[in-house]
Design a protein around this nucleic acid. Structure first.
Lengths: 345, 345
DNA sequence: CTGAAAGCGCTTACAG
DNA sequence: CTGAAAGCGCTTACAG
């Protein structure tokens, strides 16, 4: 050991007058070492300021104590919240987190999955189910454990920490219909490569059909998740001959974008049109009126994902998916259909 | 190579009929290998589905192509945005990102810094300057390059990708004062261990003093960064005998919390009281009226931080800090002081 | 341009 | 309980 480079296990061993094997044991399974020996080793470790070399450790043990998360973008508050909870739970277990993002691009997802696996991730957090079979094959072939968050499919062999987007959206649409709305439109997230967005559309369609309404009359427009796109889609919807009396949005960002646009074009929410969202993020609480939406327990989802992923990594025998409950939070943006609503022709 | 474990460099070498050194060169500096040889090796790599073992690579090369970011929390949109841009810039350079969070706790920061360095981070992104000297010593001793974002100090030997919080806050307060407000209060973030929050308070005090106003008359209350805390602080402020005609908030979350609370307690913004924030996040655009605030280029800050950190890591000779410009965005929440403002006694 | 071989810093059966 | 030694999968002078 010269002063240029960090002290190694061998330096500690020499300093303590023991073998490297003993130092290694002291660090990894201290109970297998005599207290006096342990004492000496610990002292040497502290005196030298030793910390294990990561590469050496990873190579010899074939583990990294690192897991990866690959999400669409941290700029959407739902992923930021879920990821924050996920990270905290991992840190508590001494595991560190690698983060990559896809921008909702499936090619970039495949690429980032390879990058994180190549970087030695012991496990992976993925969002949703929509990805090429080749990606699943890759994961299986490399036997990298993974947990899928935000979604749920029964008995397909994957491990989920998610919720049922379709049922949740259906319940929301039923609530809207139950309030007398018949002219309903939906501003959905882009469904291409996004099973959550697609499931929410399907759920709304379920409700419309179950209510005996004409599914064709319920128009669904898709928009990228942003305030501006939500606003534009809303404006276009309201310019039609048959404007809706209620607009169901694929998430809160779209819904709040719609509400902001409504003010701009002189429409009053909920008098002229009701609006509902999905997620229950901060945005929903600060708009006027506040937004009726589906509450998703993002933090609990992140925690559950961490728990499941660590179990999978540790070879736990049967790891069960965690399905989280969502519920509707009613606020001012949704009211019963009445004459006050701008006539839907 | 058996079917259980991943193929190694040696497997590829044997398959291609070359030495492991040649395979290694093919992967790392292909120009140093004859095209025909390269061809054979690449073919073998593909046939075997070879990817380098991370531990072996890290150990031999003493690098990980990984950098770490340690931030207060991803749940604050400013960090989520900055981190997202940081990650994208890193990914473009083939570098992966480790993320840890501190919850604004200095002890947890020190701990996470050690964890990420121990996990082989080639460099670190840190937020702000407020941390024990011991932490700086540790970083220097381990010669881990780091960049500090969100702040700036001239010539202290650190590399910054930040902005001048004090000047920005001063300019904001000057604007408020220029609008005739004399009864000004500030809802600041907690300044303990947060130099950005402390600098913003100092900037507001600078402006108050420069305007010849009584600094003592400008009350500053501190609150953790949350909508609710901002609201509570605002309510307490307005309950006083001398309520302010303008409230300067340490960030947009506090400001929007204050605005939401104002509605609850029957105060009209900006008629009864003006409110301004700091950051310019989405929240500022969706409240009614929209929030006057200081625009901070979070994405550009994240990109700059990535660029600087990679230069530092690559031993670039003189890496200069990047100081970003901020500017005030005037919206409806701030108006000129007038009789309409609730009398400040 | 290519190869033989040493070495990076750990862990872990295997003996004793 | 402890140690000698092999081995993990790479990179990189050093020769040729």
């Amino acid at each position: 050991m010269n002063e240029r480079s960090a002290p190694t296990l061998a330096d500690v061993a020499q300093h303590a007058g023991v073998s490297t094997a003993t130092v290694s044991r002291c660090l990894n399974s201290p109970e297998r070492v005599l207290p006096e020996t342990r004492q000496r080793v610990i002292q040497a470790v502290e005196q030298l300021g030793y910390t294990p070399n990561f590469g050496g450790w990873a190579l010899a043990s074939n583990r990294t104590n690192t897991v990866g998360a690959i999400i669409p973008t941290m700029e959407n508050a739902i992923f930021a919240r879920g990821l924050q909870a996920f990270q905290e739970a991992l840190a508590a277990a001494g595991v560190t987190l690698l983060v990559a993002s896809t921008g909702y691009d499936p090619d970039r997802e495949a690429e980032q999955i390879k990058a994180l696996v190549g970087r030695g991730a012991d496990g992976l957090l993925l969002i949703g189910t929509a990805r090429p079979q080749a990606t699943y094959d890759f994961l299986r072939q490399r036997s990298v454990p993974y947990v899928i968050a935000w979604s749920h499919r029964a008995n397909d062999g994957n491990c989920y920490a998610g919720f049922d987007n379709r049922n949740a959206a259906r319940a929301l649409a039923e609530r809207v219909i139950g309030y007398g709305h018949r002219a309903i439109a939906m501003i959905a997230g882009e469904t291409q490569g996004n099973d959550r967005a697609a499931d929410r559309v399907a759920g709304v369609r379920d409700a419309v059909t179950a209510a005996g309404m004409d599914a064709g009359a319920t128009s669904v427009v898709e928009a990228p998740y942003s305030l501006e796109e939500g606003g534009d889609a809303f404006a276009a919807l309201m310019r039609r001959n048959n404007p809706p009396s209620a607009v169901i949005c694929g998430n809160d960002v779209l819904a709040v974008g719609a509400m902001t646009k409504a003010r701009e074009i002189g429409l009053s929410i909920p008098r002229d049109v009701s609006i509902v969202g999905f997620d229950d993020i901060d945005l929903a609480l600060v708009v006027q009126p506040q937004l009726t939406t589906v509450h998703v327990p993002h933090r609990r989802m992140g925690e559950a994902a961490a728990r499941l992923l660590l179990q999978l990594r540790d070879g736990h025998p049967n790891v069960e998916s965690t399905i989280l409950e969502t519920h509707i939070v009613e606020r001012g943006s949704l009211i019963r259909y009445a004459r006050q609503h701008r006539e839907a022709v």
